[in-house]
Amino acid sequence: MSGASTSRLRAQVGPTASAGRIWGMVLRYWYVIRSSWPRTAELIYWPLVQMLMWGFLQIYLAQTTSFAGKAAGLFIGGVLLWDILVRSQLGFAVAFLEEIWSRNLGHLMMSPLRPTELVTALTIVSLVKLLVAMVPVALLAYLFFDFNVLSLGIAFAAFFANLVIMSWSLGLVSTGVVLRWGLGAESFAWLIAFVFLPLSCVYYPVTTLPGWLQPVALALPPTYVFEGLRAIVLNGAFDAQLMVKAFVLNLIYFALGFAAFAYFLHRARVQGSLVQMGE
């Protein structure tokens, strides 16, 4: 085996190397998405089914009740925004699960890839997957149900950002749990977001919940997003304060999520579970 010149083989270090590692991981997940059309179809499938079901339900309700007629877009907007949270969290978590399914985690964990770089790559990939899933669905909502998500303007940007940051926090916790307990905890990664479906008041106002449960709902960033959506649809008003509250909560949740991920990774190194997952 011939020896190559040492200077040419010298590894990159510093920010360039860090960016290269993040890009390497993004490429790795992109190649997986690209290699399998059923996986791409799977990204779009559930949001599409949900959109059709809630869209037709809303049409039916609008024909039979005056409230639903007045609140056109409430269900469709809710399902669209909810899917942003779920799809982004799943995009994050499933990209990580790919490493365990393909028995590649060991290689990654013994490479120079740092946890922050892995997390950055997973957030980028979750955004890419989200775009692949949601652009066709948003288009469908516009064409079939006359709901243009972009008509929400700046509010949509605020809703989107808050939901995506929350999804990353959930992604961090769920992947941390899988790191620590292995594939036995895989269902946690698939289901974690759904705990927040009733608590975030996606389809009804916070006041619908019993009094003791309302503080729990108000401690969750998505609740403010869905309250904000209702304020726009029902009153035509964008409440920026709701979004600021959601953003502050999101910063706390993201910090806690990263701390949980780092803790579970450390525990996995202490317990030796990374070796078992890698083989």
Binding site: A11, G24, R28, Y31, S111
Partner: peptide
């Protein structure tokens, strides 16, 4: 450093070139 074991796979769906590209980037290969 680096490591090789037949018991730890590289991603199955990626081509050989894609795998080497990904790992090359992780190791900062010029």
């Amino acid at each position: 450093m680096n490591f090789e074991s037949p018991y730890v796979d590289v991603p199955m769906r990626l081509t050989v070139r894609q795998n080497l590209e990904v790992f090359g980037r992780l190791y900062g290969v010029r």
